[in-house]
Design a protein around this nucleic acid. Structure first.
Lengths: 242, 242
DNA sequence: CGACACCTTGAAGAGGTTCAAGAAATGTGG
DNA sequence: CCACATTTCTTGAACCTCTTCAAGGTGTCG
């Protein structure tokens, strides 16, 4: 990977509008300044392009500034599993720490920009700034807990429940970023949703259609409007009962 | 939770025979000594008893000295998902860091003993000992990667493949601890295996029977002998084909 | 505008679940 | 130490959900 296709810009976290999302709280001015040093540069990632790939050397974590990513792992025989969808303010790359190389692909689903944070520097600085150390630990722990939730979904929910949980999760995260509580644009294909949810794309499509029939959502391609959040919540929290 | 039912013993990691499994490598003598301070005490956990429970305050990570655990999460409506099985040398409790409380149950599947490592102290010490800091990060990253693997399994494998992957994973970890490559005793019920693998206990049982018919394994209750590791590997790595 | 990727829907089929019954192991108390 | 209760495991048969295969429709981008 050459440095040629990496657009780079120097920046500062201390006045980034995503600060509350990706930075620790309760730092004093001096600490905030120092944390700026963590972000070495920014990098633009074109839609459909990988930020990193399975097998690539690990060196940095990435904070998403704009855009939308998917991460996916592959088995030896070429099976593919989407392990998550990430949006502004979220951190990707944690998988690479164990073995000093990435074990999944991170692909931009729309033109994106990330802050590159060399992990050496994160470790260095988090030895000195307790709040940063704690923050890093929380981010990793949060990812572990998130994955527990996905395991619950994959292991014990039926198609409708999975899709309902997926939509609620997406819209909730978008809402936390100032977007609508009820409207969203899916940045991923039915196939990618299916991969994430352990379903075939046809099942995803059919389940969407069922939700539309039931008046729970409106769907126009990738535009989704949630008409009845309660119904979705109910689907997730009260098994079967249909 | 009173301290009465916690059996406690003072100990030292520096001469623990699990050192290579749960401690960072390449420390000098002084650093090793200091790491002993991390383990405040040991605690015995009786079979069927929780080490910690969902909702409990988080304060420590636990290194398993002896015994075998399962961790499981529950959804609001009482669905239950086993998220992992842990054995000697492995660390549990990472889920608690984000919100200062545990989000899953850890239950001993046989009488067990754990080293209690207050997380405050881990953080303190890992600010001073780079090797420990890196080690903590690796442990968390490893857990994230492990869960990616489980997601792949749950999202894209069929029953036989799941059980094959499960057996191979177990026996490989046991082998790393000096046990047989081909024989193992399952510490968990069919139902717990099923929960972990996203299958019903009947399916687990039937799949075991199929493996026996095919001469891949011998099964007598919880005693399993693997007769044909290759066949299991093949099942995992080459989808379907029959 | 045409090519390509993406989405929807139907019909048939497979894999896993559910329900049920019985067998085997395990634990308990007398 | 044995008898009994309980838990765990196995197996069968019917059923159901999701998948597979196929075809056509819709949207998008150069």
């Amino acid at each position: 990977m050459s440095a040629m296709n990496l657009q780079t810009i120097k920046v500062a976290c201390s006045n980034c509008n995503l600060r509350e999302l990706c930075m620790p709280m309760g730092l004093n001015a001096e600490e905030l300044d120092r944390i700026d040093e963590v972000v070495s540069l920014r990098r633009k990632v074109k839609r459909g392009t990988p930020l990193f790939r399975n097998g690539e050397k690990f060196s940095s974590l990435y904070a998403i500034r704009t855009g939308f990513f998917k991460t996916c792992v592959a088995s030896e025989d070429g099976r593919d599993q989407v392990t998550g969808f990430q949006m502004a303010g979220e951190i990707i790359g944690l998988d690479g720490i164990v073995n000093d190389q990435h074990t999944c692909d991170a692909v931009a689903l729309e033109d994106a920009e990330v802050c590159v944070m060399p992990f050496d520097r994160i470790e260095e600085l988090s030895r000195e700034i307790n709040g940063l150390q704690r923050h890093v630990h929380k981010i990793m722990s949060r990812e572990i807990v998130r994955e527990h939730g996905v395991m619950l979904l994959l292991g014990s929910m039926r198609a409708e429940e999975r899709l309902a949980a997926f939509l609620l999760n997406l819209v909730q995260r978008l809402h936390a970023r100032g977007f609508s509580q009820s409207e969203l644009i899916l940045r991923m294909t039915r196939e990618e949703i299916g991969s994430y949810l352990g379903l075939k794309l046809e099942t995803v499509s059919r389940t969407f259609s069922k939700f539309v029939e039931d008046g729970i959502v409106e769907v126009k391609q990738r535009h989704v409007r949630i008409l009845n959040t309660e119904a979705l919540t109910h689907l997730v929290n009260h098994e079967t009962c249909n």
